[in-house]
């Protein structure tokens, strides 16, 4: 474990932000306050946080339909995110995108994405732009186990490796593509094995261990910055909630869920932080309290913000 307190505290803080953000959405969605549908990231926080902690504002990410965690970890503004998810004009996308299309190009967030496997080619293109411009910037492509089977993903892995592009493919294997378990949708046990087909490193990590993710992605980011090409990192994790809020989860058993909830990435990290002597338990409580305040403010901002004017309908179709 690194003894850089600043990074450790930041990761812990961000994990809690995601946890509380998603819990808040769960509550307000159930209460009928959020239009559309939401895919929650609860239980997978260590992946986004461990990966994005390796990046700077100049680096880019592409995200997924389950994107809130990635966006928060990449520095997304909680108020603007919350307002967007509530469909408000003050949101990141002026209420035009919603949960599945939040982006902040200035922060290198090239968008959540409603299409499974949609982000791979875009990430490859962002990495191509970095190589073209001879910057040291890296793109992280988050994608799920379901997306790992898409042709777009295979095309992206292939091109990125053939052209040695600075991209890190971070696979979040939460075991299910909507309701379909991994064993029914692919023959491999480890998605990382597919890296061999493209002659790139393939790494399996415990996706509920933020330090393991951070270390693996950190290595891959360094490799990418050195111009040595992409890496495929498979983070084994689990989503606590259904595919979407309202999913009855009839396809998996409660024992399995409980087993994974016992591996909650936040207390695991907490324990390590306290044991290492880097942070006290009291400090951690203080962090949580501060995050709670920030989330309350974001919620207040979202709820008190106006809905879009109807005149916005035809705006921004073209540049």
């Amino acid at each position: 474990m690194s003894h850089d307190k600043e990074i450790m505290v930041k990761m812990y803080t961000t994990m809690n932000k995601i946890r509380m953000f998603e819990s808040m959405l769960q509550e307000y969605f159930a209460a009928g306050k959020i239009p559309g549908f939401v895919h929650l990231y609860l239980g997978e926080e260590a992946v986004a946080v461990g990966a994005c902690a390796c990046l700077t504002d100049r680096d880019s990410i592409t995200s997924t339909h389950r994107g809130h965690g990635h966006l928060i970890a990449k520095g997304g503004d909680l108020k603007l995110m919350m307002a967007e998810i509530f469909g408000k004009s003050t949101g990141y996308c002026k209420g035009k995108g919603g949960s599945m299309h939040i982006a902040d190009v200035d922060l290198g967030i090239l968008g959540a994405n409603g299409i499974v496997g949609g982000g791979g080619p875009l990430a490859t293109g962002a990495a191509l732009a970095a190589k073209y411009r001879k910057t040291q910037d890296v793109t992280v492509c988050f994608f799920g186990d379901g997306a790992s089977n898409q042709g777009t993903t295979q095309e992206s892995l292939n091109l990125a490796s053939a052209w040695k592009l600075p991209v890190v493919f971070v696979n979040e294997n939460n075991g299910y593509g909507i309701s379909c378990p991994q064993c029914k949708s692919m023959a491999v046990t480890d998605i990382a094995d597919r890296a061999a087909a493209y002659d790139m490193p393939g790494v399996v990590v415990d996706g509920n261990d933020v330090l393991a993710v951070h270390e693996a992605v950190g290595e891959a980011v360094k490799r990418a910055r050195r111009g040595e090409g992409p890496t495929l990192i498979e983070c084994k994790t689990y989503r606590w909630r259904g595919h979407f809020e309202g999913d009855a989860c009839t396809y998996r058993c409660v024992e399995e869920l409980n087993e994974w909830m016992a591996k909650d990435p936040i207390p695991r990290f907490e324990e390590k932080l306290v044991e290492s002597g880097l942070v006290t338990a009291a400090e951690l409580e203080g962090i949580k309290a501060a995050v709670k305040k920030e989330l309350d403010a974001a919620l207040e901002f979202a709820q008190s913000s106006p809905l879009p004017e109807l005149s916005a309908l035809l705006e921004d179709v073209y540049a």
């Binding site: 080619p121 875009l122 490859t124 962002a126 191509l128 732009a129 777009t152 992206s156």
Partner: peptide, 14 residues
């Protein structure tokens, strides 16, 4: 797909 998508990603990146 990756021809079109990489063009899009590169274009979105400037």
């Amino acid at each position: 797909s990756v021809i079109v998508g990489a063009a899009a990603g590169a274009a979105a990146s400037g």
